[in-house]
Amino acid sequence: MPAATIKIRTQRREGALTVRALIRHPMEIGRKLDDGTQLKTHFITRVVCRLDDDVVLDADWGGGIAKNPYLSFVVDGVDAGARLTLAWTDNQGERDELVVTV
């Protein structure tokens, strides 16, 4: 994986952690361009988010998620210093992961 594909912003208020993530990814469903070029399907199929060792969000995606996906969710009862991991995998076997400390 070349440059980092994941950006995460977190905000913790009274133990409730809001996660906002942006992933750089084409999310291509295999369109045929006007010039006849057939694009290969290339989209994220799974995103797993963990807080320390607990899975807090596990998503199965299709090509219906917009290009450069945005994902936001909220987790309760999160202590400061917890480690948040976001990992994605796509249909071409590429993957990336980012760990941030809350």
């Binding site: 969000l57 090509g63 998620i65 969710f73 987790v75």
Partner: peptide
């Protein structure tokens, strides 16, 4: 493909999700 995505939540995760779809 009608199914855009499925989001499964852990016990502490609120029943909320925000994203962008096609």
């Amino acid at each position: 493909v009608p199914l855009i995505g499925r989001f499964s939540f852990g016990p502490r995760t609120r029943p909320f999700v925000a994203t962008r779809v096609k």
